[in-house]
Design a protein around this nucleic acid. Structure first.
Lengths: 347, 347
DNA sequence: ACGACGCATTCCAACGTTGTAACAGCCAGA
DNA sequence: TCTGGCTGTTACAACGTTGGAATGCGTCGT
């Protein structure tokens, strides 16, 4: 409350306000002696710069937003940790926003509401019509996570994502390699996001490579990527006529897989003997579930690092930069839900 | 970027800047005709107030921080959602911070770093020495979550929490009611937080009520409340001499329980037949785990609501308010990890 | 010895907003 | 007609900070 200002420090150190300002911002033209004197005063008084005033004057706040659909989704919570860590390295503070998949909210954030408060935004969109996003294209620094359609989309933003098609293909191919022939997919949506479409494509590609045909009845729709929808989708699959039931299932996210595993458990079916399960996300929850879940793990640290660095570059540059697409690595980790043997979680 | 200011609106509407300011803040002394004219101009130009300037002038930013140990802990992620929702009702924005249990960081936040940026802080402390917190007592609005020691602690802050002793007692009593006689506790810490101590006390009280004696070997230490520590603690318990092994375990948090269940699974032990499991948190992860986890569910919405309202009251009041302790309700929900029968998760 | 130069520091204005005080216009009552 | 009291509006200053121009001072070259 007792705000210490530059003025207080200046009086204490016997210099002008501007000199103090210069010292705290590390501008070169300050003699060593005064610098020390000022720094001592800063310490003694416990001065901390006022971000609001700074922002007002310079247009920079050091504040960026990370907008995710749902914080209670482990993947996003873990990603948020990485983003925060990465941003801290660059002296940026992260404001975490939740869109709950609301398109209006996503658009609002992407177009820089509170541009007056934020220097930039990292957005993980779910339902934003990319077209609208493109038209709302502005100079506000924006990085999109995981939502690049490979078609003719010229959204004015950088993209950071994993190769969703390839990730889905690897997971599905792994299931096929086990000899499974009726492989289901959980994660299809009526109004599919780009991520959802790409994972479906990877799924189909793997089926094709394995000489299997795509059966639409094995791809039930879900409303959201949460445990409950995974559970219900799996119930739908297990209530198919006996000959039509799947012997493996690829889930678009870990949370769907957790729900699916629960449904199999309730139906008294064994994993992976009767139904093998694989997914994408690599959350810790998947590692500890019983059985532990085979999953494609995106390199979250790399995603966070790329996104933050990208955004920082855009914030600091004067001229408009070209928009880039960065691919982060991923890797398939096989566990009990496909391998079967009771394993030990890393100690 | 193209910032629309009060001035732009004023020119457009043909009034003074101050009148526009009055209109947007709903101060009474404005005639209906000018109000409409101004509002139209606001809409046409898409004016949004600049939070930094507002903060600089008024000392209010409408920004509060929620500081939790770890966002990847489902309990805190879910709590964050409730806090955000509750804060939104009051027009407040929530900045989420992660302390990772670092005492210095906790103290820094509690004493209002960025008092210049934040109106107040909701802190869920883990390792802050309450003594230091008390001495750092200041006028900065602060609400503490779940960390009240019932002793002579006069920390200058409001507290919102559940009755930890009672919650732990209920969970343990439930285990005892199943006829279990060797009940273990996972969650003891070398340097225990108040929460940890209270849950231990409730545990011991339930043992006493059931005529059981407390065996320290059944209360292994953990470093953090995460899945990994739960797993390792359970491994310690299952490697005790056969006659000493527990037939039930009460975990201080869901995450510990998930780890414990995993350890039991790896050891080939059945839940609840050989070992029954109960915990506290009521996260969705616990509901979907196999077997589903009996847990005490704190009313997170109530906790969030109380905390935010409490903080808002403190922010808006001029005189120092008396510090209060608010207890939020909780309820025990029994599931497969103690009841055994394979149940259906609510559809 | 004098002007020119370089360097460290200071002065001034501005960022967008709001609180206070002042101001103009109007009607009621004398 | 004038005073007094409203009501609605405006002018001004200030919040803490920083960019740019201006200032002071010592040093160097001629």
């Amino acid at each position: 409350m007792t705000a210490v200002t530059l003025k207080d420090v200046a009086i204490r150190a016997g210099v002008s306000i501007k000199t103090v300002s210069n010292v705290v911002r590390d501008v070169p033209r300050v003699s060593e002696s005064t610098r020390e004197r000022v720094l001592r005063a800063v310490r003694e008084l416990g001065y901390r710069p006022n971000p609001s005033a700074r922002r007002l004057r310079t247009g920079r706040s050091g504040l960026i937003a990370l907008c995710v659909p749902d914080l209670a989704t482990p993947y996003f919570a873990e990603l948020a940790q990485h983003v925060r860590a990465e941003a801290a390295k660059l002296g940026l503070t992260v404001l975490i926003e939740e869109t709950m998949g609301d398109a209006t909210e996503e658009l609002r954030l992407a177009t820089g509401v509170g541009a007056a408060l934020l220097d930039g935004v990292i957005l993980s969109p779910l339902h934003v019509p990319l077209g609208e996003l493109a038209s709302a294209s502005n100079e506000f620094p924006l990085v999109l996570l995981g939502e690049r359609s490979y078609e003719r989309d010229q959204v004015a933003a950088d993209h950071v994502l994993i190769d969703n098609i390839e990730a889905a293909r690897e997971a599905t191919a792994h299931l096929a390699a086990l000899g499974r022939t009726r492989i289901a997919a959980i994660g299809m949506q009526a109004h599919a996001s780009a991520t959802s479409r790409q994972r479906l494509e990877g799924f189909q590609r793997a089926l094709h490579d394995a000489g299997l045909t795509y059966d639409p009845r094995l791809a039930p729709l879900v409303k959201r990527f949460d445990r409950r929808n995974g559970l219900m989708a799996m119930r739908t699959l297990t209530s198919l006529p006996p000959g039509d039931r799947p012997d493996a299932v690829f889930c678009f996210t870990d949370l769907l897989a957790v729900g699916a595993q629960r449904a199999l458990y309730e139906a008294g079916m064994t994993i992976p003997e009767e139904v093998a399960v694989a997914s994408i996300d690599g959350s810790e929850e998947a590692l500890y579930s019983t059985p532990s879940l085979t999953s494609v793990i995106p390199d979250k640290a790399a995603i966070a690092s790329l996104a933050v660095k990208c955004l920082a570059a855009r914030i600091h540059s004067e001229e408009p930069l070209p928009f880039e697409v960065h691919l982060a690595p991923h890797r398939l980790v096989t566990r009990e839900s496909t391998e079967g043997a009771r394993q030990q979680v890393t100690p």
